[in-house]
Design a protein around this nucleic acid. Structure first.
Lengths: 158, 158
DNA sequence: TTAATAAAAGACAAATTTATCTTTAATTAA
DNA sequence: TTAATTAAAGATAAATTTGTCTTTTATTAA
């Protein structure tokens, strides 16, 4: 009605791009294909230079691997695709506040000193943490490969 | 490890302040007391001018009521305290993306065209929506009045 | 009617996030 | 060894969010 700001999602844009990029890279790595930053940005519909920065974070955190030079690009090893959980990507980019922090921003919020929404948020944080901890890159990538899941919008004008 | 950003919570800071402020105002309105912006900011430990802006949004959205002049300040009517749900505050300040939007930022994400985390996020969004829809300002305020819940940190140096 | 009080409104500034551009370093192949 | 390719790194800029300050408007009480 009279809000101030554009809408705010669960994760930062950087994190959204990071997750989508990781999944795209994983779908190609299983076929033995390295993908360059141009392909990544094009496929997940993200700004290329910004996406490159995020790839650097993911690379430094050991989530994806990069190779310079001709035939280089980004990849994820078969073992990594199986072992990497969504939470590792979120942690690397957005940190743990989304599933650990107080819902209304108290620096100190605990069972002994709870904020008014502490108990309600505990369930949500718990479910989010469980989901992030259980979901592997492989699960997500296989859904994309099978055509069940998508990494960008259908509408070309978005 | 090598992240870029400060930690990002579920809601914006504006929304966190808005929720805390609404609860504080409600705890006083039940005692028939109007509170000024100074008291609000002091009690919820927030920047006063920024908090004033957020109060304006809440007022325009009919969540709280304001009175200018001597003896003025912010209040919430008894009926409003009972009927207002957390979701109204969140909607007014942050919008509905947190409980409606795609987890990884696709503009079009639905049952027919799901992103890779669509089904997992559905549960979390649903739980969050349920909680926001069910929780009233009264519930939160009564916990603060009884001393069970807190609106700011214990530690004076935070 | 005047003075005091308190929120509303508007302009502005700082900090953070998002996005872009240029240069450098590493790798491959000729 | 040179040229081409590709990511890394660094500088910069735009956009958004957060925070501050000043002026205006409304209300109350004297």
């Amino acid at each position: 009605m009279y809000g101030i700001k554009s809408l705010k999602g669960m994760f930062s844009k950087a994190c959204e791009y990071g997750i989508r990029a990781s999944i795209f890279i994983a779908t190609n790595s299983s076929k033995g294909i390295r993908v360059g930053i141009k392909d990544v940005a094009k496929e997940i519909d993200s700004p290329e230079p910004f996406t490159a920065k995020i790839m650097q974070i993911l690379t430094k955190n050991g989530i994806i691997h990069s190779a310079k030079g001709v035939g280089g690009g980004f990849e994820v090893s078969d073992e990594a695709v199986k072992s990497i959980k969504l939470i590792q990507i979120v942690d690397a980019i957005d940190g743990d506040k989304i599933y650990k922090g107080c819902g209304i921003g108290l620096k100190e919020c605990s069972e002994d000193h709870p904020c008014p929404v502490h108990h309600e948020f505990k369930k949500i944080r718990g479910l989010l943490l469980e989901m992030l901890t259980k979901t592997t890159l492989e699960q997500l990538a296989s859904g994309v490969k099978s055509g069940d899941f998508f990494l960008k919008t259908l509408n070309i004008n978005d």
